[in-house]
Computed example of a mutant assay.
Amino acid sequence: MNEGRPKALRIKEVADLVGISVRTLHHYDEIGLLTPDEVTGSGYRLYSNENLETLQQILFFKELGFPLKKIKEIINSPSFDREEALTLHRKMLLEKRNRLDQMIATVDKTIQYAKGEIDMSNKEKFEGFDFSENPYEQEARERWGDEAVDKANAKAASMTKEMQENFNNLYRKLADLRHESPSSEESQAAIGEWYVLLNKFGHYSYDAFKGLGQMYVDDERFTKNIDKFGDGLAVFMRDAMGIYADNHKK
């Protein structure tokens, strides 16, 4: 009998067990997020039980919206405590569930309202929506300090619906151009409008503008939000912003 240490799993077995792709596991290995404990002479990756526990942690963090770069920093930290992390996961997932339950209830009420079965107040139509939490805020505070973030929050709070629509319209305009060259006259004119609009809410030097464009691609949360307007928009904006900044610094 083979007792004690659990049998190591090959990459295909792990993928089938978890329900993710082999390519995803390869990617996690390539970026140093999850490296299998053993690779055989034939090149087979073998995942230990400890590897599976780490993968579970990664997927919990990913479910809660953490970018892979941040997950890697967290789980590789000497102060990382698995039990403490699980407690945090549970708390955050319960909060997420509560909010989703509220939104489901709002959907159910709205269906009944649409059928003429019940009355529904304007307040009830928006129960469950919560835009008060900003997932970037803590990271921003660590990077730029409280004062800068507080000023940015004050600016954002004062943004009218008209201003927000200006942002969305410009995103759509840029999305329509994303298959063009980022250096074209039309692309550069549109990204110039983006530079002007951003500077109404803060002060961006050309270097900062270029750096912001790079962040649109480096941080998958930004990429996901921007690419809602069109696949590849974040990359296009990064390239166009870099060209715009370089041209205007000359």
Rank of each mutant, 00 (worst) to 15 (best):
N76C: 04
S77A: 08
P78D: 02
P78Q: 02
S79G: 05
S79V: 04
S79K: 07
F80P: 01
D81W: 03
D81G: 04
R82Q: 14
L86D: 08
T87F: 14
T87V: 12
T87K: 15
L88Y: 05
R90N: 10
K91N: 08
M92Q: 11
M92K: 09
L93Y: 08
L93H: 07
E95A: 14
E95P: 05
K96A: 09
R97T: 13
N98Y: 06
N98A: 12
N98H: 12
Q102P: 05
M103Q: 04
I104K: 08
A105C: 06
T106V: 04
T106C: 01
T106I: 04
V107Q: 02
V107N: 02
D108Q: 15
D108S: 08
K109G: 00
K109C: 02
T110A: 07
T110F: 00
T110Y: 00
I111Y: 03
I111Q: 00
I111R: 02
Q112F: 02
Y113R: 00
A114C: 10
K115V: 00
K115F: 14
K115Y: 13
K115E: 01
E117P: 01
E117S: 02
I118A: 01
I118N: 00
D119W: 03
D119K: 07
D119I: 05
M120N: 01
S121A: 10
S121D: 05
S121E: 06
N122R: 04
N122C: 04
K123A: 12
E124P: 05
E124Y: 01
E124R: 03
E124H: 04
E127G: 05
E127D: 13
G128K: 03
F129C: 04
F131C: 15
E133Q: 10
E133L: 13
E133N: 12
E133S: 10
E133M: 10
E133C: 06
N134V: 11
P135Q: 02
P135E: 00
P135D: 02
Y136I: 09
Y136W: 12
Q138L: 11
E139Y: 08
A140C: 14
A140G: 15
A140L: 14
A140Y: 02
A140W: 01
R141L: 12
E142M: 08
E142Q: 10
E142L: 09
E142I: 06
E142A: 06
W144L: 12
W144N: 07
G145S: 02
D146R: 13
D146L: 09
E147D: 08
E147P: 04
E147S: 07
A148L: 05
V149S: 05
D150R: 15
D150C: 12
D150F: 15
K151P: 03
K151S: 06
A152D: 07
A152L: 12
N153K: 12
A154R: 15
A154Y: 13
A156S: 09
A157P: 05
A157C: 07
A157S: 10
M159R: 07
T160D: 09
T160P: 09
K161D: 14
K161S: 12
K161F: 15
E162I: 01
E162T: 03
M163N: 11
